[in-house]
Design a protein around this nucleic acid. Structure first.
Lengths: 331, 331
DNA sequence: AACTATATATGAAACGTTATATGAAATTAT
DNA sequence: ATAATTTCATATAACGTTTCATATATAGTT
């Protein structure tokens, strides 16, 4: 006899209801079954508080309804938002989400292997490791990085976003602007922000400077960079476009510390569209990434059967939103 | 013959290596086996690129190395941080994390059932639904809410935190302070912040007002509340303790909109310790919750075998950190 | 050399499902 | 009324592991 406290199985339900195992399976899966049988089974299920074992299901069906999400750090507000919306998009389709935070890029491969061992139905990944090994038969969707023609990539329209930033700064009266990025270059989509910005500056006749700061202590780097461009207490730029809101936030702090007013003396636009809280205003004027749409697109591409129809790169439209570090009120 | 593209199983490895199934299983699980056998099996595993099917393992072992985390909204920075650190604590123990965002409290039961169906090894939940049904045999650890003697609860020392806030405000020269909370009362641990604050005010001889605002549009509620306490352009409080950083952040914005200076005219302390980015300064002066320790404690309690040793409530120490909305510099 | 004792590889059974073939009963057609 | 057909519950065989009883090879004794 089964122990009193063991978890009930379909067999137990079948015995309780006095029907065959297969009949219980049908009822559980909503396959039509004789009225009297269905009622008896349903009663037994309720009585025993039966719940299907999805591991047995997964074993049988070779399908797990689970997707792994690889993200660098879900404490970062942009990634947190991405995780949240992907979670929502998956749950809408009754899929579960396994969250894998990749503290360093060595871990990425480890998690991909782990995810494959877990036999997830697919992986969505925002990764940095340039030579990841991904199994042929594990569906994969990349965010912000093209990984070959076999793997679809979803990203914001970073080029258009850069362009938009330049145009906005021009519209807001800037004449001499700077682009700021920090750290080593990776061959990923966000890099296109720079090219887009440059393009926008050229087409609007803005004089500009592209600057990639060393990957050191951000505050020191900023201070050094800004100091080089301050003459007689005046900054030689009247507009700055930062590759991320994080950078924008930090440089705004540095600027204010140097007694430069934002947006009066210099206007700053970031990229991402992060907020302190959901629903709060943005932390700076910014090019907002369409996170819910990115999430939905990733999930769509990942779960769609028709592999040949998967485009290699999907760019989603960005928007500009003022966040108090530009002077739209005064125009 | 098996199809070329099907996933290899232990059986395939056994055939390839010319050994029995059980031998492969032993090698995979690190159980000692004859040297020559081990080598042959390892070679076959590499050749076929074999990976264990954890659903078959889970079915057999009735153990999944997966924990479900129920959180209201991982877009909120406090919850995002919690999710991140719990993820880390779980991964350290080779456990996977299934993330379940409960957009509304009706979903909580749904997710718990779903989590149980997944046969997770346990659930960590920060929930609001007062009458959740949790299976006896599913280990559960609650965050911030006591759910009976059978279910351990992990929380910050909210009472001490409230007290600390009052003491800090007193130390910083306040004489007339207010406590602010918004929305309907839930019987959860964070409510103790109020009692702690009141206690602190009494012991320090501060005159105080406890105010629970209606659960409406926060900005309107704040404006109404503050207007009632402004006479001749001066606020009748010189210190405010908010039950969360979110509230603190919002009220600071409202105060500044009403031409009241923070911290010069009124000092504000929040609770939680959130930041815009990991590593950034806090958004306000605040009582910081020890999120990594909370995470570690939850995981510890969840996975520990000795059920009788699980204490019903664990309170972890909080700390005070200035975030620019108090005047420590000027003392 | 024959026998026991020990070590260790083997293979079948089980885990809880789902899918498929089987067969019994009910329905319809002749 | 009987045969043909449909309907639908049943029983059985997978799915890929782990475990355990069994079989086999190896080493140790007399």
């Amino acid at each position: 006899m089964k122990s009193e406290h063991s978890v009930p199985t379909m067999k137990d339900v079948a015995r309780e209801a006095g029907v065959a195992l297969g009949t219980v399976s049908k009822v559980v899966n909503g396959i039509p079954v004789g009225e009297s049988y269905r009622l008896r089974v349903e009663e037994a299920i309720k009585k025993l508080n039966y719940q299907v074992n999805s591991y047995a299901q997964g074993l049988k069906a070779n399908k797990t309804y689970t997707v792994a999400l690889l993200l660098p750090n879900t404490e970062d507000p942009f990634f947190a938002s991405l995780a949240y919306h992907i979670n929502l998009s998956l749950l809408k389709r009754r899929y579960r989400m396994l969250l894998c935070c990749t503290v360093n890029s060595d871990q990425e491969q480890e998690y991909i292997t782990m995810a494959q061992q877990n036999k997830v139905d697919g992986i969505i990944g925002l990764t940095y490791n340039p030579n990841l090994q991904i199994e042929e038969n594990t569906p994969f969707v990349a965010i912000d990085r093209s990984m070959g023609s076999k793997i679809p990539c979803v990203a914001s329209d970073n080029f258009a976003g850069g362009q938009l930033a330049a145009e906005k700064l021009a519209d807001l009266g800037c004449t001499n602007v700077a682009f700021l990025r920090i750290g080593s270059s990776l061959d990923n989509e966000p890099n296109k922000r720079k090219a887009g910005f440059e393009n926008g500056c050229l087409s609007r006749g803005l004089s500009y400077k592209m600057k990639i700061l060393n990957d050191g202590e951000p505050f020191e780097e900023f201070t050094r960079f800004l100091s080089e461009h301050i003459h007689d207490g005046r900054l030689s730029f009247d507009g700055i476009f930062c590759v991320t809101d994080r950078l924008a936030y930090l440089i705004i702090k540095t600027l204010r510390q140097l007694n430069l007013r934002v947006p009066e003396d210099v206007q700053v636009i970031g990229f991402d569209g992060i907020r302190v809280f959901p629903g709060a205003e943005h932390v700076c004027s910014t090019i907002v990434q369409p996170v819910p749409e990115i999430a939905e697109m990733c999930v769509n591409l990942l779960l769609q059967e028709n592999i040949s129809a998967k485009p290699p790169l999907v760019c989603l439209p960005v928007t500009y939103v003022s966040g108090g570090t530009t002077r739209e009120g005064e125009i």
